[in-house]
């Protein structure tokens, strides 16, 4: 048990990520490696999540859906959600423009949005965090050799916590990697927002008489 307090203190310091040496150390090879870079996008190396949402009106949604899905597969993508009213697909980001054109050719695009979220910083931070935690884990392993029972238990407890944290970081990285690897396109064959009409009074009286409800009612 001699020397244990000092060892535990060092473990605590390592676990808290306070030792720069630990942060700089190489990653432990026990866990599967996360790719150092996520292959995506242009040569700038930016990692971007692209999401496009469209409301597409077509005469025959079934036929349009089949053609779009076939086109998505040709572009290296795949469908993730297929319902009567909605289609959600993923394609490599560099094929997004082609897919948007393909979808637009199927009918009338009533609404279209494109969201672009830069994930580069978040991914870099998570990769850094992952590397640091793995380094700490690696250092902790080295303490096993000359530790007493109590110290070993404390080390194991700390390592278990670290492994959990590493898995959480890896999971988050995988999610971001997936978002950056594929652009997501949501195609709705009808308006999602069903109650979108608001009454706006026009100073030109007759314009207030032009409405779908009124037309149907008075026909």
């Amino acid at each position: 048990m001699n020397g244990c307090p000092g060892k535990i203190a060092r473990i605590a310091a390592l676990a808290a990520g306070l030792l720069p040496a630990a942060l700089a150390a190489s990653a432990d090879d026990a866990a599967p490696a996360i790719p150092a870079t996520i292959e995506q996008g242009p040569a700038t190396g930016r990692k971007t999540a692209l999401v496009s949402r469209m409301v597409l009106k077509v005469v025959n949604p079934d036929d349009a859906r089949s053609r779009i899905v076939a086109g998505v597969r040709e572009l290296g993508g795949f469908p993730v959600l297929v319902t009567d009213d909605q289609l959600e697909v993923k394609v490599p980001p560099e094929r997004l423009d082609e897919l948007l054109r393909l979808v637009a050719d199927e009918g009338l695009v009533l609404e279209r949005t494109l969201e672009r979220q830069d994930l580069t910083l978040e991914i870099a931070q998570l990769e850094g965090l992952l590397g640091a935690k793995r380094a700490v884990l690696s250092k902790l392993r080295a303490f096993f050799d000359d530790s007493g029972v109590q110290a070993t238990l404390r080390i194991e407890q700390t390592m278990t916590g670290l492994v959990t944290e590493i898995e959480q970081v890896r999971g988050r990285l995988r999610v971001l990697e997936e978002r950056a690897r594929y652009a997501r396109i949501e195609v709705s064959f009808r308006f999602k927002e069903r109650d979108r009409l608001i009454y706006v009074h026009s100073p030109f009286g007759w314009l207030n008489t032009v409405s779908l409800d009124r037309f149907i009612e008075e026909f």
């Binding site: 009533l110 609404e111 308006f191 009409l197 608001i198 706006v200 030109f204 314009l207 032009v210 779908l212």
Partner: peptide, 15 residues
């Protein structure tokens, strides 16, 4: 122009 603006202001989507 007035008709189109009025309809769009109410939430109709221009076709």
């Amino acid at each position: 122009e007035a008709l189109q603006l009025h309809l769009e202001a109410q939430g109709y989507v221009s076709k």
